[in-house]
Every structure is written in C-alpha cells, then in structure tokens.
Amino acid sequence: MVTPGTASAAAGQFRYTYTTTEGYDAVGFLNNPPSGTCVNVQGPASEPGSPSRAPSNQTDATATVFLDADCQGATYTLRPGARASERLLLRSVLFS
C-alpha cells in the first residue's frame, strides 16, 4: 500500500527588502514557504524589474537565493537563522 505524501514547508519566515515605485524601502516576507518549490520574490508595489535584497532566513530550512527569477542565475545559500547583507540581490528562492 502506498501512502500519499504530504506537502512540506519550511517553518518560519523568510524576509527581504525591496524598493517601492515611490523609492521607499519596504520589507517583504514569506511565511512557512513551501520546500522544494521555486518562489519568485517581489514585494507589492515594487519597482518593476528591480531585484529584492538583504534576505533573512528565519526558517528551519536552508534557503538558496537566486539572482534571477525562476531559480536561475547566480546563487547564495543561507542556513536557517542566517541573514545576508544589503548587497545580496535576489529574485527567487528555493527551500530545502
């Protein structure tokens, strides 16, 4: 007998900073993001095409952030509880 799998999620919150169309800094977040699924990050009312920055991984899973959307391009890995500098840019993230 096969038991159906359950969807897993990284417990906690992943935060990032983005710039609004008015030029203000704002914080976006993902609560309990899905594991094994690429998530494109962009804050509401963010400047079109602009990357987010300064990710903070407050989940219990490792987060791999990508410079490009759809988990493409250069990567950086953040362990659980890690925070990156303002210089780290991202457009997507994958939790493991």
Rank of each mutant, 00 (worst) to 15 (best):
T37E: 14
A10H: 01
P48E: 13
T20V: 04
T59S: 02
G73I: 06
F95N: 05
N32D: 15
T59L: 10
T77G: 00
L89D: 12
S52G: 13
R79Y: 03
T62G: 01
S56K: 15
A69G: 02
P51W: 01
A45T: 15
S92E: 07
V27W: 09
T64L: 11
P55A: 09
S96M: 07
T21P: 01
L88S: 00
D68S: 07
P55N: 02
P4S: 09
Y18V: 08
A61R: 15
S50Y: 11
T19L: 11
P33R: 14
T64W: 13
L94Y: 07
A69F: 07
T17V: 14
N32C: 08
T17P: 00
G73D: 06
M1W: 14
A54N: 02
S52D: 08
G28A: 07
G73L: 04
S46E: 11
R79E: 05
V27G: 01
T37P: 03
N32S: 10
L89N: 14
S8W: 00
P48Q: 10
R15T: 04
R91I: 01
C38E: 07
A54H: 07
A63S: 02
V2P: 09
S50H: 11
A9C: 01
N57F: 03
F66D: 03
D68P: 01
F14P: 00
A54F: 06
S92K: 03
A10Q: 04
N32A: 08
C71G: 05
Y76M: 12
P33G: 11
A11V: 13
F14A: 06
R53Q: 09
L90P: 02
V39L: 12
R15I: 04
N32M: 10
F95K: 10
V41Y: 11
L94Q: 12
Y16T: 10
G5R: 14
D68A: 03
D25L: 13
Q58R: 13
M1S: 09
R15P: 00
S35H: 02
F66V: 09
A82T: 03
T21S: 10
A74I: 07
E22Y: 01
V27L: 09
C71S: 04
T62V: 15
G28M: 04
D70Y: 04
P55W: 03
S56V: 13
A9I: 08
A82H: 09
T37W: 11
Q72G: 03
Y76A: 15
Q58S: 05
C71D: 02
E47D: 07
T21M: 09
A26S: 10
V2Q: 12
Y76H: 09
D25P: 07
A26C: 03
E22V: 02
S96W: 09
L67R: 11
P51Q: 06
P33N: 08
S85I: 06
Q58T: 01
T62P: 00
P44S: 10
V2L: 06
T64I: 13
G28L: 05
A26M: 11
P34Q: 10
A45N: 15
Q72F: 08
E22P: 00
N40P: 07
P4V: 11
P55D: 05
G28V: 05
D25N: 14
A45Q: 15
P34F: 08
V39Q: 08
N31H: 04
R87K: 12
S35T: 13
Q72N: 09
D60P: 00
C38H: 03
G5V: 12
N31V: 13
F29D: 01
G43K: 13
D25A: 14
T21V: 12
